[in-house]
Amino acid sequence: MPVLHDDLSDFADSIVLGLGLSSKVQPFCPKYPVETALDVYRNNYFGNLHDALAYAYPVIEQLVGKDFFRCLTKQYIARHPSASGNLHHYGAEMADFIAGFEPAQGVVYLPDIAVLEWACHRAYFADDGPTLDVGRLLKIHPENYVGLVLHVHPSSHLVRSSYPITAIWNGHQPGANCDFHINLDSGPTNALVSRTNNAIIVSELGEADATWLQIIRSGVSLGEATATVLECHPEFDLLAALVNLVARGILIDFTLENTQ
């Protein structure tokens, strides 16, 4: 076994790092020179990971163009070997990578778009959740509503950005009008990601609602979260927020805080 392990490591280094094979590995390759066969394998490796990234980051690819994107992914793949047997897990570090990728510095909103796209990617493959059991909620005494701890669907994510990432993302979806006009200076946004009927939806959430949802996500009770938000955002409309988030299947369950 140790011999096989060493051989496989040697082979992996050859593929990922572009090194030559050590002499003890003797691949069975009757029709081509070994180097040619390794090139084929190496190109498949990089090509598959490139495709995986293009699949997870279609908006980034459109924003920077296919050539630039290939240049970007080539360097990403060289620094981030796949760590999972499931290619859908590949690409998690893209936002950080882009933030440090010199040629992309001019596109200042690109890292935030990558965060949003990864959230969408994870949302698509997230577990199903229950739907809010209204019958159970009806049994809670109104006195205890403040102690409700609301649970959020596993596919739901909130991405905050200084740039209009929701508009940029939606402008690059299939069927969207590509003649968009987006002003980068339109102020910070909160992009809310959710999944309905297996489709990913990204919509904008107001500052008060986003702050509230953020607090709710951390497991704070309805009473405490609402009080906190109302201090900074007296205009916060709890009913509207609840209706929106329940209708979109983002609030899916609840428990009662013990102290209530």
């Binding site: 190109n43 990089f46 090509g47 296919k66 050539d67 040629p103 200042v108 002003n183 980068l184 200076d185």
Partner: peptide, 20 residues
Amino acid sequence: RDPMDFVAVPKGTCEKISDG
């Protein structure tokens, strides 16, 4: 497949986003 190491300029829809 990677002859574009020298292509270091984004050439996509980012050109259309104002001030981008």
